[in-house]
Simulated assay, not measured.
Amino acid sequence: MSSETSIFANRQAPGISRRRFLALSAGALAGVCAGSYASGIRLPSPRADKTAMDAARFHALRRYTQTAFGRIAHVEQGSGPAALFLHGFPLNGFQWRGALDRLAAYRRCIAPDYLGLGYTEVADGQSCAPQAQVAMLVALLDALGVEHADVVANDSGGAIAQLLLAHHPERVRSLLLTNCDTELDCPPPALLPVIALAKQGRFVDDWLGKWRHDHVLARSAAGIGGMCYADPADPTDEAIETYFAPLLASQRSRDCAHAYATALEHNSLSGIGPALARSRVPVRIVWGDADTIFSANNADYLARAFGHSLGVRRLKDSKLFWPEERPDVIAEEAHRLWTTQGDKA
């Protein structure tokens, strides 16, 4: 994951017209929405459970739901209207442990592991591409009796969330997006070395295996810590184990993780613009400005792309996986978004 993403600034994805690009650049509506959203709203403070979710509790809470796509691993907390938390790559639902603790008082919080990542057991011959992830999520929601959900997403999970909204708008009640792909930046240039290694069947062992063996390296500038976390103490020892152990468990788990990464080579968001513009689902973007993977331009692009954008909040000195490090911000923004749309929980 190279830190050089500046070449994005002048890059335009195939199939996106100059007229649409200029129209998005105007951004007047997003500015108005953001202003009204940010002012005059006071919310009760989200609460954290007395027992914070550590790895042992995460494993104890994990359940599996059988679908045509495989046995989907997921963790749930809380009750009431559903909230769906979509993790980044190469993480799993453990990324959302702090947010789940804080938001379980307001929602039935569901954090699944994707096909090819985490503890989900992928069916034989099953694709791990973004479109398949969306179909899997719909099947999981159906199996869990969830009609629609408030969606919170990060990294490649943000691309999956956009596809879910575009193709199944009735399943998304609201969307809180953090650093992630856009139609113009999918995949980001920084991901290309990972995709190349995955195509060779080497990424899991060459990167994740070395980081699991050497936690100091994992947290260094050359590791996932320096690239994706702001706190030099992150990821923690138990997070490294929880994220990487299931991917290193067998040749099949390696193959599935490589299939996930390889599928990111193609722009899954190409042509999605009109569907996002038509959507009336309220969307809020919160962006870590120190991200070395995705361009800072992505945040404003997303704010202009959605038909019901509630603007952007920027977090200084926060990197790609800031939702794991700053769960209070996720809780604050999620609760604000849910209350803004009329939820009185």
Rank of each mutant, 00 (worst) to 15 (best):
M1I: 08
S3E: 12
E4D: 14
S6K: 07
R11K: 03
Q12P: 00
G15N: 06
R20N: 10
S25T: 01
G27I: 13
A30I: 05
G31W: 13
V32R: 12
P44H: 06
S45R: 15
T51H: 12
D54A: 12
F58Q: 08
A68T: 14
F69Y: 14
G70C: 10
G70F: 10
G78R: 11
A82M: 11
G88S: 13
G93H: 13
F94Q: 05
W96I: 08
A105M: 02
R108H: 15
C109F: 01
P112T: 07
D113N: 09
D113M: 03
D113V: 04
L115A: 11
L117T: 12
T120W: 10
V122E: 03
G125E: 03
Q126Y: 01
S127L: 05
Q131D: 13
L137G: 05
V138Y: 10
A139P: 09
L140W: 05
A143C: 07
L144E: 06
L144W: 07
H148V: 05
A149F: 05
V152R: 00
V152D: 04
A153E: 10
S156D: 07
A159R: 14
I160N: 09
A161C: 03
H168W: 12
P169G: 09
V172Y: 08
R173Y: 04
P187C: 15
P188W: 12
L191Y: 14
V194R: 14
V194C: 14
Q200A: 15
R202P: 07
L208S: 02
K210Q: 14
W211I: 09
D214T: 07
R219M: 10
A221N: 13
C228E: 02
Y229R: 00
A230E: 06
D231Y: 10
D231F: 10
P235E: 05
T236K: 10
E238V: 04
E238G: 04
T242N: 04
Y243C: 03
L247Y: 02
L248E: 01
L248F: 01
S250M: 00
R254E: 04
A257C: 15
H258E: 02
N267M: 05
N267T: 09
S268C: 15
L269G: 03
G271T: 12
P274F: 00
V281F: 03
G288P: 13
G288R: 12
T292F: 12
A296Q: 09
A296G: 07
N298C: 15
N298M: 09
A299L: 06
D300E: 15
L302G: 07
L302Y: 08
L302N: 11
A303N: 04
G307Q: 09
G311Q: 06
L315C: 13
K316W: 02
S318N: 06
F321Y: 15
W322E: 05
E325F: 00
L337F: 05
W338M: 15
A345P: 04
